[in-house]
Design a protein around this nucleic acid. Structure first.
Lengths: 237, 237
DNA sequence: CTCCTTAAGTGTCTTTGTGTCACTAAATAC
DNA sequence: GTATTTAGTGACACAAAGACACTTAAGGAG
Protein backbone atom coordinates (compact mmCIF):
# COMPACT_ATOMS: atom_id res chain seq x y z
CA UNK A 1 0.00 0.00 0.00
CA UNK A 2 1.33 3.44 -0.86
CA UNK A 3 1.41 6.24 1.67
CA UNK A 4 -1.25 8.08 -0.29
CA UNK A 5 -3.59 5.10 -0.19
CA UNK A 6 -2.94 4.75 3.51
CA UNK A 7 -3.75 8.41 4.13
CA UNK A 8 -6.89 8.28 1.99
CA UNK A 9 -8.21 5.41 4.09
CA UNK A 10 -7.01 6.70 7.45
CA UNK A 11 -9.76 7.01 10.02
CA UNK A 12 -8.85 9.54 12.71
CA UNK A 13 -11.54 8.21 14.99
CA UNK A 14 -10.53 4.56 14.76
CA UNK A 15 -8.72 4.77 18.10
CA UNK A 16 -9.98 6.51 21.19
CA UNK A 17 -7.87 9.61 21.81
CA UNK A 18 -7.47 11.58 25.04
CA UNK A 19 -9.44 14.78 25.52
CA UNK A 20 -7.07 17.56 24.52
CA UNK A 21 -7.08 20.97 26.16
CA UNK A 22 -4.81 23.93 26.72
CA UNK A 23 -4.68 25.98 29.93
CA UNK A 24 -2.70 28.97 31.01
CA UNK A 25 -1.56 30.30 34.33
CA UNK A 26 -1.55 34.06 33.81
CA UNK A 27 0.14 36.07 36.53
CA UNK A 28 0.33 39.76 37.15
CA UNK A 29 1.52 42.07 39.91
CA UNK A 30 -0.68 44.74 41.41
CA UNK A 31 -0.46 46.75 44.61
CA UNK A 32 2.36 44.62 45.91
CA UNK A 33 0.53 41.35 45.39
CA UNK A 34 1.08 38.51 42.96
CA UNK A 35 -2.20 37.64 41.27
CA UNK A 36 -3.44 34.84 39.05
CA UNK A 37 -6.28 34.97 36.54
CA UNK A 38 -9.20 32.67 37.26
CA UNK A 39 -12.35 32.00 35.25
CA UNK A 40 -15.63 30.74 36.60
CA UNK A 41 -16.65 27.55 34.83
CA UNK A 42 -19.94 28.03 33.00
CA UNK A 43 -20.47 24.39 32.06
CA UNK A 44 -20.09 20.84 33.28
CA UNK A 45 -18.01 19.25 34.66
CA UNK A 46 -16.98 21.14 37.82
CA UNK A 47 -19.49 23.81 36.91
CA UNK A 48 -19.33 27.05 38.95
CA UNK A 49 -15.87 26.26 40.28
CA UNK A 50 -13.04 28.61 39.41
CA UNK A 51 -10.36 27.37 37.06
CA UNK A 52 -7.65 28.44 34.65
CA UNK A 53 -8.48 30.07 31.33
CA UNK A 54 -8.34 27.40 28.66
CA UNK A 55 -10.35 24.77 26.88
CA UNK A 56 -10.44 22.29 24.06
CA UNK A 57 -8.17 22.75 21.11
CA UNK A 58 -10.30 23.79 18.16
CA UNK A 59 -8.98 21.88 15.15
CA UNK A 60 -10.91 24.11 12.78
CA UNK A 61 -9.76 27.49 14.03
CA UNK A 62 -6.39 26.83 15.63
CA UNK A 63 -3.39 25.96 13.51
CA UNK A 64 -1.08 25.46 16.50
CA UNK A 65 -1.29 24.98 20.26
CA UNK A 66 -0.01 28.52 20.69
CA UNK A 67 -2.82 29.87 18.51
CA UNK A 68 -5.25 28.14 20.80
CA UNK A 69 -3.71 29.51 23.98
CA UNK A 70 -3.44 33.04 22.69
CA UNK A 71 -6.98 33.08 21.36
CA UNK A 72 -8.37 32.10 24.74
CA UNK A 73 -6.22 34.50 26.69
CA UNK A 74 -7.24 37.33 24.42
CA UNK A 75 -10.85 36.34 24.87
CA UNK A 76 -10.59 36.59 28.66
CA UNK A 77 -8.25 39.56 29.07
CA UNK A 78 -8.72 41.57 25.89
CA UNK A 79 -5.03 41.36 24.99
CA UNK A 80 -2.32 38.85 24.09
CA UNK A 81 0.16 38.81 26.99
CA UNK A 82 3.75 39.82 26.17
CA UNK A 83 5.10 36.65 27.77
CA UNK A 84 3.75 33.17 27.11
CA UNK A 85 5.82 30.02 27.59
CA UNK A 86 4.97 26.39 27.77
CA UNK A 87 5.13 25.09 31.34
CA UNK A 88 4.48 21.37 30.91
CA UNK A 89 1.83 18.90 29.86
CA UNK A 90 -0.34 16.97 32.26
CA UNK A 91 -2.01 13.80 31.06
CA UNK A 92 -3.59 10.87 32.85
CA UNK A 93 -6.76 8.87 33.16
CA UNK A 94 -8.06 10.56 36.29
CA UNK A 95 -7.65 14.33 36.10
CA UNK A 96 -10.95 14.88 34.28
CA UNK A 97 -14.12 12.99 35.15
CA UNK A 98 -14.87 12.60 31.46
CA UNK A 99 -11.88 10.25 31.19
CA UNK A 100 -8.31 10.21 29.91
CA UNK A 101 -7.36 13.82 29.30
CA UNK A 102 -4.30 15.84 28.44
CA UNK A 103 -3.74 19.53 28.99
CA UNK A 104 -0.83 21.53 27.66
CA UNK A 105 -0.23 24.19 30.28
CA UNK A 106 1.35 27.59 29.63
CA UNK A 107 2.70 30.24 31.97
CA UNK A 108 1.98 33.82 30.97
CA UNK A 109 2.62 37.29 32.35
CA UNK A 110 0.86 40.56 31.70
CA UNK A 111 0.57 43.98 33.30
CA UNK A 112 -2.47 44.59 35.46
CA UNK A 113 -3.21 47.91 33.79
CA UNK A 114 -3.46 46.62 30.26
CA UNK A 115 -6.19 44.06 31.04
CA UNK A 116 -8.04 46.02 33.67
CA UNK A 117 -10.58 47.71 31.36
CA UNK A 118 -11.67 44.41 29.84
CA UNK A 119 -11.79 42.36 33.03
CA UNK A 120 -13.83 44.94 34.91
CA UNK A 121 -16.69 44.45 32.45
CA UNK A 122 -17.14 40.73 33.10
CA UNK A 123 -18.18 38.87 36.23
CA UNK A 124 -16.77 35.44 35.41
CA UNK A 125 -13.10 36.51 35.37
CA UNK A 126 -11.07 37.67 38.36
CA UNK A 127 -7.53 38.37 39.47
CA UNK A 128 -7.07 36.31 42.61
CA UNK A 129 -4.39 37.17 45.11
CA UNK A 130 -2.03 34.19 45.17
CA UNK A 131 -2.17 34.09 48.96
CA UNK A 132 -5.92 33.56 48.90
CA UNK A 133 -5.76 30.49 46.68
CA UNK A 134 -6.13 28.08 49.59
CA UNK A 135 -9.57 29.38 50.36
CA UNK A 136 -11.00 28.57 46.95
CA UNK A 137 -12.06 25.23 45.45
CA UNK A 138 -10.43 24.96 42.05
CA UNK A 139 -11.48 22.79 39.11
CA UNK A 140 -9.51 19.71 38.03
CA UNK A 141 -5.81 19.71 38.97
CA UNK A 142 -5.54 23.45 38.43
CA UNK A 143 -4.17 24.09 41.91
CA UNK A 144 -1.21 21.91 40.98
CA UNK A 145 -0.70 23.69 37.67
CA UNK A 146 -0.64 27.04 39.43
CA UNK A 147 1.85 25.74 42.00
CA UNK A 148 4.10 24.41 39.25
CA UNK A 149 3.88 27.63 37.24
CA UNK A 150 4.73 29.65 40.29
CA UNK A 151 7.73 27.48 41.10
CA UNK A 152 9.03 27.77 37.54
CA UNK A 153 8.63 31.52 37.63
CA UNK A 154 10.41 31.61 40.96
CA UNK A 155 13.37 29.89 39.35
CA UNK A 156 13.33 32.34 36.46
CA UNK A 157 13.29 35.25 38.90
CA UNK A 158 16.66 34.00 40.16
CA UNK A 159 18.44 34.16 36.81
CA UNK A 160 16.44 36.39 34.44
CA UNK A 161 14.22 39.46 34.33
CA UNK A 162 11.23 37.59 32.92
CA UNK A 163 9.13 38.88 35.85
CA UNK A 164 9.31 42.32 34.22
CA UNK A 165 6.56 41.16 31.87
CA UNK A 166 4.16 41.30 34.82
CA UNK A 167 4.69 45.09 34.88
CA UNK A 168 3.56 47.85 32.53
CA UNK A 169 5.79 48.84 29.63
CA UNK A 170 7.43 51.53 31.75
CA UNK A 171 8.52 50.59 35.24
CA UNK A 172 11.05 51.49 37.90
CA UNK A 173 13.81 49.34 39.31
CA UNK A 174 12.26 49.23 42.78
CA UNK A 175 9.02 47.98 41.19
CA UNK A 176 10.87 45.26 39.34
CA UNK A 177 12.72 44.28 42.47
CA UNK A 178 9.44 43.97 44.30
CA UNK A 179 8.06 41.50 41.73
CA UNK A 180 11.20 39.45 42.07
CA UNK A 181 10.87 39.50 45.82
CA UNK A 182 7.25 38.38 45.64
CA UNK A 183 8.21 35.47 43.42
CA UNK A 184 11.34 34.45 45.28
CA UNK A 185 9.71 34.96 48.66
CA UNK A 186 12.65 36.81 50.14
CA UNK A 187 13.87 40.39 50.23
CA UNK A 188 16.79 41.16 47.95
CA UNK A 189 19.73 43.50 48.27
CA UNK A 190 18.91 46.66 46.35
CA UNK A 191 22.51 47.07 45.29
CA UNK A 192 23.02 43.52 43.99
CA UNK A 193 19.78 43.63 42.08
CA UNK A 194 20.49 46.93 40.36
CA UNK A 195 24.10 46.12 39.62
CA UNK A 196 23.48 42.92 37.70
CA UNK A 197 20.75 44.48 35.59
CA UNK A 198 22.90 47.48 34.78
CA UNK A 199 25.91 45.35 33.87
CA UNK A 200 23.85 43.20 31.52
CA UNK A 201 22.32 46.29 29.90
CA UNK A 202 18.87 44.75 29.89
CA UNK A 203 16.88 47.95 30.31
CA UNK A 204 16.62 51.27 28.51
CA UNK A 205 16.42 54.42 30.57
CA UNK A 206 13.53 56.52 29.32
CA UNK A 207 14.70 59.71 30.99
CA UNK A 208 11.36 60.13 32.68
CA UNK A 209 10.89 59.79 36.42
CA UNK A 210 8.02 58.80 38.62
CA UNK A 211 7.55 60.12 42.11
CA UNK A 212 5.24 59.53 45.01
CA UNK A 213 6.69 60.03 48.46
CA UNK A 214 10.43 60.36 48.35
CA UNK A 215 12.99 60.66 45.60
CA UNK A 216 11.57 60.03 42.10
CA UNK A 217 12.56 56.73 40.49
CA UNK A 218 13.86 56.41 36.96
CA UNK A 219 11.50 54.78 34.49
CA UNK A 220 12.87 51.99 32.33
CA UNK A 221 11.67 49.95 29.39
CA UNK A 222 12.83 46.40 28.59
CA UNK A 223 15.18 45.85 25.68
CA UNK A 224 13.76 43.47 23.08
CA UNK A 225 16.32 40.75 23.78
CA UNK A 226 16.14 41.16 27.56
CA UNK A 227 13.66 38.30 27.86
CA UNK A 228 16.17 35.84 26.44
CA UNK A 229 19.03 36.85 28.71
CA UNK A 230 20.08 34.57 31.54
CA UNK A 231 22.53 35.65 34.22
CA UNK A 232 25.41 33.23 34.73
CA UNK A 233 24.91 33.43 38.44
CA UNK A 234 21.68 32.98 40.39
CA UNK A 235 20.54 35.24 43.17
CA UNK A 236 20.86 33.50 46.51
CA UNK A 237 17.83 31.80 47.90
CA UNK B 1 -28.85 18.94 34.52
CA UNK B 2 -26.67 17.43 37.24
CA UNK B 3 -23.01 16.69 36.71
CA UNK B 4 -23.74 12.98 36.87
CA UNK B 5 -26.33 13.22 34.13
CA UNK B 6 -23.91 15.27 32.07
CA UNK B 7 -21.19 12.64 32.49
CA UNK B 8 -23.53 9.76 31.69
CA UNK B 9 -24.45 11.40 28.41
CA UNK B 10 -20.99 12.68 27.52
CA UNK B 11 -19.76 11.51 24.14
CA UNK B 12 -15.97 11.56 23.99
CA UNK B 13 -16.05 11.37 20.21
CA UNK B 14 -18.46 14.24 19.69
CA UNK B 15 -15.59 16.58 18.82
CA UNK B 16 -12.63 15.78 16.63
CA UNK B 17 -9.56 15.55 18.83
CA UNK B 18 -5.91 15.79 17.74
CA UNK B 19 -3.88 12.63 17.30
CA UNK B 20 -2.01 12.18 20.55
CA UNK B 21 1.45 10.66 20.75
CA UNK B 22 4.48 10.61 23.01
CA UNK B 23 8.08 10.62 21.79
CA UNK B 24 11.40 10.55 23.52
CA UNK B 25 14.85 11.74 22.64
CA UNK B 26 17.12 9.24 24.35
CA UNK B 27 20.79 10.18 24.47
CA UNK B 28 23.82 8.27 25.53
CA UNK B 29 27.57 8.70 25.40
CA UNK B 30 29.85 6.09 23.90
CA UNK B 31 33.45 6.22 22.72
CA UNK B 32 33.59 9.98 23.04
CA UNK B 33 30.47 10.54 20.95
CA UNK B 34 27.01 11.74 21.86
CA UNK B 35 24.43 9.37 20.42
CA UNK B 36 20.67 9.42 20.01
CA UNK B 37 18.35 6.42 19.74
CA UNK B 38 16.47 6.11 16.45
CA UNK B 39 13.86 3.61 15.38
CA UNK B 40 13.05 2.61 11.83
CA UNK B 41 9.37 3.22 11.14
CA UNK B 42 7.62 -0.03 10.26
CA UNK B 43 4.32 1.49 9.16
CA UNK B 44 2.78 4.42 7.32
CA UNK B 45 3.12 7.36 7.29
CA UNK B 46 6.82 8.09 6.65
CA UNK B 47 7.43 4.35 6.51
CA UNK B 48 11.08 3.23 6.49
CA UNK B 49 12.31 6.61 7.69
CA UNK B 50 14.11 6.80 11.02
CA UNK B 51 12.33 8.53 13.90
CA UNK B 52 12.19 8.81 17.65
CA UNK B 53 10.88 5.99 19.82
CA UNK B 54 7.26 6.74 20.65
CA UNK B 55 3.72 6.33 19.48
CA UNK B 56 0.09 6.75 20.31
CA UNK B 57 -0.99 6.95 23.91
CA UNK B 58 -2.82 3.74 24.75
CA UNK B 59 -5.81 4.72 26.88
CA UNK B 60 -6.37 1.11 27.92
CA UNK B 61 -2.89 0.27 29.14
CA UNK B 62 -1.39 3.62 30.14
CA UNK B 63 -2.61 5.44 33.20
CA UNK B 64 -0.36 8.45 32.66
CA UNK B 65 1.79 10.00 29.94
CA UNK B 66 4.86 8.83 31.82
CA UNK B 67 3.60 5.23 31.79
CA UNK B 68 3.30 5.50 28.07
CA UNK B 69 6.79 6.89 27.56
CA UNK B 70 8.47 4.41 29.86
CA UNK B 71 6.67 1.46 28.31
CA UNK B 72 7.89 2.39 24.86
CA UNK B 73 11.42 3.08 25.94
CA UNK B 74 11.61 -0.23 27.73
CA UNK B 75 10.27 -1.94 24.64
CA UNK B 76 13.06 -0.51 22.47
CA UNK B 77 16.00 -0.59 24.86
CA UNK B 78 15.16 -3.35 27.31
CA UNK B 79 15.39 -1.00 30.30
CA UNK B 80 13.76 2.08 31.80
CA UNK B 81 16.32 4.90 31.60
CA UNK B 82 17.42 6.44 34.91
CA UNK B 83 16.61 9.94 33.66
CA UNK B 84 13.40 10.92 31.91
CA UNK B 85 12.07 14.47 31.85
CA UNK B 86 9.44 16.23 29.83
CA UNK B 87 10.95 18.46 27.18
CA UNK B 88 7.93 20.17 25.66
CA UNK B 89 4.82 19.48 23.63
CA UNK B 90 4.53 20.07 19.92
CA UNK B 91 1.09 20.43 18.41
CA UNK B 92 -0.14 21.81 15.11
CA UNK B 93 -2.15 20.98 12.03
CA UNK B 94 0.79 20.19 9.79
CA UNK B 95 3.38 18.07 11.57
CA UNK B 96 1.67 14.78 10.71
CA UNK B 97 0.12 14.08 7.32
CA UNK B 98 -2.83 12.43 9.03
CA UNK B 99 -3.86 15.86 10.35
CA UNK B 100 -3.80 17.87 13.56
CA UNK B 101 -1.47 16.06 15.91
CA UNK B 102 0.16 16.60 19.27
CA UNK B 103 3.23 14.92 20.66
CA UNK B 104 4.49 15.20 24.21
CA UNK B 105 8.24 14.92 23.92
CA UNK B 106 10.58 13.66 26.64
CA UNK B 107 14.33 13.83 27.00
CA UNK B 108 15.98 10.74 28.47
CA UNK B 109 19.48 9.56 29.26
CA UNK B 110 20.87 6.06 29.68
CA UNK B 111 24.24 4.36 29.68
CA UNK B 112 25.31 2.70 26.48
CA UNK B 113 26.33 -0.50 28.24
CA UNK B 114 23.01 -1.22 29.88
CA UNK B 115 21.03 -1.22 26.60
CA UNK B 116 23.66 -2.71 24.36
CA UNK B 117 22.63 -6.37 24.76
CA UNK B 118 19.03 -5.64 23.80
CA UNK B 119 19.72 -3.26 20.94
CA UNK B 120 22.23 -5.58 19.28
CA UNK B 121 19.50 -8.15 18.74
CA UNK B 122 17.22 -5.93 16.68
CA UNK B 123 17.75 -4.33 13.30
CA UNK B 124 15.18 -1.53 13.55
CA UNK B 125 16.86 0.34 16.43
CA UNK B 126 20.21 2.15 16.29
CA UNK B 127 22.34 4.58 18.24
CA UNK B 128 23.13 7.34 15.79
CA UNK B 129 26.09 9.61 16.31
CA UNK B 130 24.67 13.09 16.80
CA UNK B 131 27.09 14.50 14.22
CA UNK B 132 25.71 12.22 11.53
CA UNK B 133 22.12 13.37 11.94
CA UNK B 134 22.32 15.71 8.96
CA UNK B 135 22.85 12.81 6.60
CA UNK B 136 19.64 11.04 7.52
CA UNK B 137 16.04 11.82 6.56
CA UNK B 138 13.99 11.82 9.76
CA UNK B 139 10.25 11.35 10.15
CA UNK B 140 7.88 14.20 11.06
CA UNK B 141 9.48 17.11 12.95
CA UNK B 142 11.80 14.78 14.84
CA UNK B 143 14.91 16.64 13.76
CA UNK B 144 13.55 19.68 15.56
CA UNK B 145 12.70 17.69 18.69
CA UNK B 146 16.24 16.32 18.81
CA UNK B 147 17.69 19.80 18.38
CA UNK B 148 15.50 21.16 21.19
CA UNK B 149 16.34 18.26 23.49
CA UNK B 150 20.01 18.76 22.85
CA UNK B 151 19.79 22.46 23.56
CA UNK B 152 17.97 21.83 26.83
CA UNK B 153 20.54 19.26 27.86
CA UNK B 154 23.29 21.70 26.97
CA UNK B 155 21.77 24.19 29.38
CA UNK B 156 21.56 21.56 32.09
CA UNK B 157 25.20 20.65 31.56
CA UNK B 158 26.04 24.22 32.58
CA UNK B 159 24.40 24.07 35.99
CA UNK B 160 23.84 20.41 36.96
CA UNK B 161 25.34 16.94 36.62
CA UNK B 162 22.32 15.51 34.84
CA UNK B 163 24.63 14.39 32.00
CA UNK B 164 26.00 11.76 34.41
CA UNK B 165 22.90 9.69 33.63
CA UNK B 166 24.33 9.08 30.16
CA UNK B 167 27.17 7.12 31.82
CA UNK B 168 27.24 3.74 33.57
CA UNK B 169 26.61 3.57 37.30
CA UNK B 170 30.32 3.83 38.00
CA UNK B 171 32.26 6.48 36.15
CA UNK B 172 35.33 8.68 36.48
CA UNK B 173 35.46 12.45 36.68
CA UNK B 174 37.30 12.79 33.36
CA UNK B 175 34.52 10.73 31.75
CA UNK B 176 31.85 12.97 33.22
CA UNK B 177 33.74 16.05 32.12
CA UNK B 178 33.89 14.68 28.60
CA UNK B 179 30.10 14.26 28.44
CA UNK B 180 29.69 17.83 29.62
CA UNK B 181 32.15 19.01 27.00
CA UNK B 182 30.30 17.14 24.26
CA UNK B 183 27.04 18.75 25.29
CA UNK B 184 28.37 22.24 25.86
CA UNK B 185 30.55 22.10 22.76
CA UNK B 186 33.60 23.55 24.46
CA UNK B 187 36.49 22.22 26.51
CA UNK B 188 36.28 22.89 30.23
CA UNK B 189 38.88 23.59 32.86
CA UNK B 190 39.62 20.34 34.67
CA UNK B 191 40.13 22.14 37.95
CA UNK B 192 36.92 24.17 37.84
CA UNK B 193 34.89 21.15 36.91
CA UNK B 194 36.25 18.93 39.68
CA UNK B 195 36.12 21.64 42.31
CA UNK B 196 32.44 22.46 41.97
CA UNK B 197 31.41 18.80 42.02
CA UNK B 198 33.56 18.12 45.08
CA UNK B 199 32.23 21.14 46.95
CA UNK B 200 28.62 20.17 46.31
CA UNK B 201 29.33 16.59 47.40
CA UNK B 202 27.33 15.16 44.53
CA UNK B 203 29.33 11.98 44.04
CA UNK B 204 30.40 9.07 46.21
CA UNK B 205 33.93 7.76 45.85
CA UNK B 206 33.82 3.99 45.46
CA UNK B 207 37.48 3.45 46.29
CA UNK B 208 38.01 1.56 43.08
CA UNK B 209 40.13 2.87 40.24
CA UNK B 210 40.14 2.38 36.51
CA UNK B 211 43.24 2.60 34.40
CA UNK B 212 44.13 2.47 30.74
CA UNK B 213 47.18 4.46 29.70
CA UNK B 214 48.28 6.80 32.44
CA UNK B 215 47.36 7.32 36.07
CA UNK B 216 44.24 5.40 37.13
CA UNK B 217 41.11 7.48 37.68
CA UNK B 218 38.89 7.21 40.74
CA UNK B 219 35.49 5.66 40.15
CA UNK B 220 32.46 7.50 41.48
CA UNK B 221 28.77 6.81 41.82
CA UNK B 222 26.03 9.51 41.86
CA UNK B 223 24.33 10.35 45.12
CA UNK B 224 20.59 9.86 44.97
CA UNK B 225 19.79 13.57 45.30
CA UNK B 226 22.53 14.63 42.90
CA UNK B 227 20.09 14.83 40.01
CA UNK B 228 18.07 17.53 41.73
CA UNK B 229 21.04 19.73 42.56
CA UNK B 230 21.60 22.95 40.64
CA UNK B 231 24.77 24.99 40.96
CA UNK B 232 24.16 28.65 41.72
CA UNK B 233 26.64 29.63 39.07
CA UNK B 234 26.80 28.40 35.47
CA UNK B 235 29.89 27.29 33.69
CA UNK B 236 30.91 29.84 31.09
CA UNK B 237 29.84 29.28 27.52
C1' DC C 1 65.66 -0.15 37.13
C1' DT C 2 65.33 4.12 34.95
C1' DC C 3 63.38 7.16 31.86
C1' DC C 4 59.64 8.58 28.92
C1' DT C 5 54.84 9.05 28.00
C1' DT C 6 50.27 9.54 29.35
C1' DA C 7 46.53 10.79 31.91
C1' DA C 8 44.73 12.00 36.83
C1' DG C 9 44.63 15.12 40.12
C1' DT C 10 46.35 19.58 42.99
C1' DG C 11 48.16 24.48 44.35
C1' DT C 12 47.49 28.96 43.79
C1' DC C 13 46.73 33.31 41.90
C1' DT C 14 43.47 36.03 39.09
C1' DT C 15 38.95 37.44 37.80
C1' DT C 16 34.12 38.07 38.11
C1' DG C 17 30.07 39.06 40.31
C1' DT C 18 27.17 38.96 44.59
C1' DG C 19 26.32 40.22 49.78
C1' DT C 20 26.42 43.77 53.04
C1' DC C 21 25.72 48.09 54.73
C1' DA C 22 26.62 52.71 55.38
C1' DC C 23 26.29 56.72 52.77
C1' DT C 24 24.43 60.39 49.53
C1' DA C 25 20.50 62.41 46.66
C1' DA C 26 16.01 64.18 45.56
C1' DA C 27 11.51 64.65 46.36
C1' DT C 28 7.30 66.07 49.93
C1' DA C 29 5.26 67.69 54.39
C1' DC C 30 5.36 70.68 58.12
C1' DG D 1 14.84 75.32 57.04
C1' DT D 2 14.23 70.33 59.15
C1' DA D 3 12.32 65.73 59.20
C1' DT D 4 10.74 61.93 56.57
C1' DT D 5 10.71 58.93 52.78
C1' DT D 6 12.35 56.54 49.03
C1' DA D 7 16.02 56.21 45.10
C1' DG D 8 20.37 55.36 44.12
C1' DT D 9 25.87 54.84 45.08
C1' DG D 10 30.61 53.59 47.25
C1' DA D 11 33.44 50.40 48.90
C1' DC D 12 34.97 46.28 50.96
C1' DA D 13 34.21 41.29 51.99
C1' DC D 14 33.42 36.89 50.16
C1' DA D 15 32.42 32.96 47.09
C1' DA D 16 33.20 30.46 43.12
C1' DA D 17 35.02 30.05 38.44
C1' DG D 18 39.16 30.64 34.99
C1' DA D 19 43.91 29.87 34.01
C1' DC D 20 47.86 27.28 34.20
C1' DA D 21 51.80 25.28 36.11
C1' DC D 22 52.81 21.58 38.93
C1' DT D 23 52.79 16.79 41.11
C1' DT D 24 51.36 11.92 41.07
C1' DA D 25 50.65 7.23 39.45
C1' DA D 26 50.29 4.10 36.18
C1' DG D 27 52.46 1.39 31.63
C1' DG D 28 56.02 0.55 28.29
C1' DA D 29 60.78 0.86 25.97
C1' DG D 30 65.47 0.46 26.57
Amino acid sequence: MSEQQYLDNYDRKAFDAPLMTVDSVLFTCHEGQLKVLLVKRASHPEIDKWGLPGGFVDLENDQTLEDSVMRRLKQKTGVVPPYIEQLRTYGNAGRDKRGWSVTVCYTALVSYQVCEPHIETVADVQWLDIEQLDQLALAFDHRQLIADARERLRQKALYSIIPAYALPELFTLPELQQVHELLIGKTLQKKSFRRRIEQAELLIETGEKRSERGRPATLYRMRGEAGQYNFVRNLEF
